[in-house]
């Protein structure tokens, strides 16, 4: 099961990377960035996953006996933070994209005609 998680997350990363490298529309680039980010988040969660694991909450003395069956909570905390960071990046980049549309009259990002 962990292998399925890791393979699917890596394929998401590469699909997103292809999108970032080849598309020219800004909105499509941002969607591809979000796909990469989803893949990385899934990779982090897969690193802490245990087959048939329990939620990592210490409720009673009985749950201390099951410590080695619990999933690792640290990658989940990292993923939570990185989701918030990704939301901030996307919101800020979309605000910049609106201004780019106003100043360039186009949604396409280009390498050459930047001047003027």
């Amino acid at each position: 099961m962990t292998k399925v998680f890791i393979l699917s997350s890596l394929s998401l990363v590469f699909v997103g990377l292809y999108g970032v490298l080849t598309r020219k529309n800004i909105v499509k680039i941002l969607i591809a960035l979000n796909i990469i980010e989803t893949g990385i988040n899934m990779l982090l969660v897969a690193f802490g996953y245990i087959e048939g694991g329990l939620t990592p909450i210490l409720q009673s003395d009985l749950s201390i006996a099951n410590l080695d069956k619990m999933v690792d909570p640290v990658p989940q905390a990292l993923v939570l933070t990185s989701i918030v960071i990704g939301l901030g990046t996307t919101a800020f980049a979309l605000a910049l994209a609106i201004r780019y549309k106003n100043t360039h009259n186009s949604n396409l990002i280009t390498a050459t005609d930047e001047e003027g």
């Binding site: 941002l30 980049a93 910049l96 780019y100 001047e115």
Partner: peptide
């Protein structure tokens, strides 16, 4: 110029 530069740096 600055909008394009900021967007490229951010991406």
């Amino acid at each position: 110029l600055s909008t394009g530069a900021a967007l490229k740096f951010l991406i």
